[in-house]
Write a protein that binds this DNA or RNA. Structure first.
Lengths: 235, 235
DNA sequence: AGGCTTAAATGACTATAGTCAAGTTGTGGG
DNA sequence: CCCACAACTTGACTATAGTCATTTAAGCCT
């Protein structure tokens, strides 16, 4: 795996891209890479965090095992995304576990490296905060979705996030398998299946791991209308 | 309202308490206080953030209005707690709205004050991250609860968080009205009522705004068992 | 191609939470 | 002291999602 390519991806990640060249080099020189097979565990909840992770290839899911054994997928990260910033700084324990969803490649930045960088340049801290904020924001919107939207609406929103455009029709590729998508959206695979079926009535057709959306606006409209109304529309 | 008391509460907040005396003074000197009546709005989602808030008296809720009009309560903050750190730094817009739940008193720290403090002492950044992390953690555990626990179990967990002790019996005071608790737990007031009724079978009795818990361990046991089992136990 | 393995869709049934409406309790005001 | 208003509880019904079992379809390997 060409080292140069990895560097590029890491440098373009949300976390590092606003750093100066000099600081980027310093951080990268202190970091290491590791490859994981599908299903391998990166870390478990309760372990002490010593590094920040940036995904340079593949997909990583963060999940949480409740005391009763239920699994809740908290998020799924793709190439260029980072996680674990806030935890690593405090030498805290992870509130979630991480597992490779596909074969993947992850860069580990020791927290001391970033702490050092922050001492050199306080602006770095702002970048780190920004990245942490992005996660916070994503969690807030997940909460909103779970509390205020029905299953099919959450699926609709998920598809809309994958769209490149704001209107017209398009075909998106489902980024990971349906079992995982279901987890990410807080539902069972069967319910996901049924949600897809309902979305047919608003012009969404699933074929393999592709979703064809006839009219993006129509789908958005569906995801944003009142649950009760939405139900009638989907009849 | 004695200024000295406010200072003390602010200084003991999670956000500021690890700062040096000098930095605390600097930050406080740049801050302002405001009182809000019950129901008043502190800010709306979409507004640009320019300050971090610390609650010095009363309760403030953060909520989000979904495009379809549904309200999702994201969190409720009490005396000594802070919110809006990560957003304010980026001059970003708030992802949530904030409203006074009771009459309350809030300290506003202009983000420039903290940015300045961070330049002086990079350790400050770590404190801010820690505080942001606490919010992140709380959101993660809310997500887990919503995805993996039933209504009565979430209520049980909520009560357990209010307990001072780990075992035995105790009486806790419900911190805000039931309408709001229901929102915070992602359910309707009616469902909350029914959850309370179910919890009677595991030794919880509600009277006014007090909850008497006969046996904390028993309640924890209930909140942690499998939803299916839990249902049988509550019969 | 054919059979093997796993993912996904469907059907039947159950449970949990939402909705709407009616009743209950509790509190503050006159 | 009683009324009025609001918060809360309860009941009946509906809808949405979970469970379990079965069918269908899709990759995959030699």
């Amino acid at each position: 795996m060409p080292n140069e390519r990895r560097r590029k991806i890491a440098q373009n990640s949300l976390l590092l891209k606003s750093f100066s060249q000099e600081v980027q080099d310093m951080v990268l020189s202190m970091s290491s890479w590791r490859e994981y097979d599908r299903g391998e565990t990166l870390f478990l909840q309760g372990e002490t965090a010593q590094a920040i992770h940036i995904v340079t290839e593949g997909w990583v899911k963060l999940y949480r095992i409740a005391p009763n054994g239920g699994e809740a997928v908290v998020n799924v990260f793709a190439r260029g995304e980072s996680f674990g910033e806030a935890v690593a700084f405090r030498g805290h324990t992870y509130p979630v576990s991480a597992e490779a969803v596909t074969a993947c490649e992850v860069m580990r930045i020791p927290s001391v490296a970033l702490l050092e960088a922050m001492r050199k340049d306080p602006e770095i801290a702002v970048s780190v905060l920004a990245s942490t904020f992005a996660h916070l924001h994503s969690l807030v919107s997940q909460l909103e979705q779970l509390k205020a939207q029905t299953g099919p609406q959450r699926v609709a929103e998920f598809l809309l996030e994958l769209c490149e455009h704001e209107e017209g029709s398009c075909v998106v590729t489902l980024p990971y398998d349906k079992f995982l998508i279901a987890g990410r959206l807080g539902m069972k695979p069967e319910s996901l299946s049924r949600s897809f079926a309902k979305l047919k009535t608003v012009g969404v057709h699933i074929k393999r791991n592709h979703a064809a959306i006839d009219d993006i606006e129509r789908l958005r409209d569906f995801s944003e209308t009142d649950p009760v109304e939405a139900w009638h529309k989907a009849q």
